[in-house]
Amino acid sequence: MLELRPCCECCGTDLPPASREARICSYECTFCAGCADGVLRGLCPNCGGELVRRPIRPAERLLKHPAGTVRKVKPGGCVAA
Rank of each mutant, 00 (worst) to 15 (best):
K74C: 06
V52G: 09
I56T: 07
R71M: 08
R53N: 15
P45E: 05
C35D: 09
G42T: 07
A80D: 01
R23L: 00
H65K: 10
I56A: 12
L62S: 13
L2S: 05
S26K: 05
R54L: 03
I56K: 02
K64S: 12
P6V: 04
R54D: 11
A36W: 14
D14W: 15
R20V: 11
L51E: 08
D14H: 15
R41M: 00
R53H: 13
F31T: 06
L15D: 01
A18C: 10
C7D: 09
P45D: 07
V79E: 07
K74A: 11
G49R: 03
C47S: 03
A67H: 03
R5G: 12
C10R: 02
N46S: 05
M1D: 02
C32F: 13
A18L: 09
K64V: 10
P45L: 13
S26N: 04
V79H: 04
R20D: 13
C11Y: 05
D14G: 14
A81G: 02
D37R: 14
P55K: 02
L43P: 00
I56N: 06
E28V: 11
R54T: 06
L15Y: 11
V70H: 06
K64T: 09
G76V: 12
V70S: 01
L4Y: 05
A18D: 14
A33H: 08
P16D: 15
A59Q: 09
G76I: 12
R41C: 03
C44F: 03
L2G: 04
G42H: 00
D14A: 15
R20I: 12
L63K: 11
C25P: 01
C78G: 02
R57Y: 00
H65M: 10
V39N: 00
M1G: 08
P55C: 00
D14Q: 15
D37E: 15
P45K: 01
G77M: 07
E9Y: 04
P16E: 15
Y27S: 02
K64M: 11
P45A: 09
L40M: 08
L4H: 03
C32R: 05
L15H: 13
L40D: 02
L4T: 00
K74E: 03
R71W: 12
R5T: 07
K72D: 08
S19P: 14
C10P: 01
R54H: 03
I24R: 01
M1V: 09
R61E: 10
R71V: 10
C47R: 03
C47V: 01
E3Q: 04
P75Y: 00
P17V: 04
E60C: 11
G68N: 05
G76T: 12
R71T: 07
V52T: 15
G68C: 09
G38Y: 12
R23M: 08
V73L: 06
G34L: 14
T69A: 12
C32N: 02
C44I: 04
A59T: 09
A33Q: 12
V39C: 01
T69V: 14
T13H: 13
S26V: 05
M1E: 01
G38L: 13
P55T: 10
S26D: 04
R61G: 00
E50N: 08
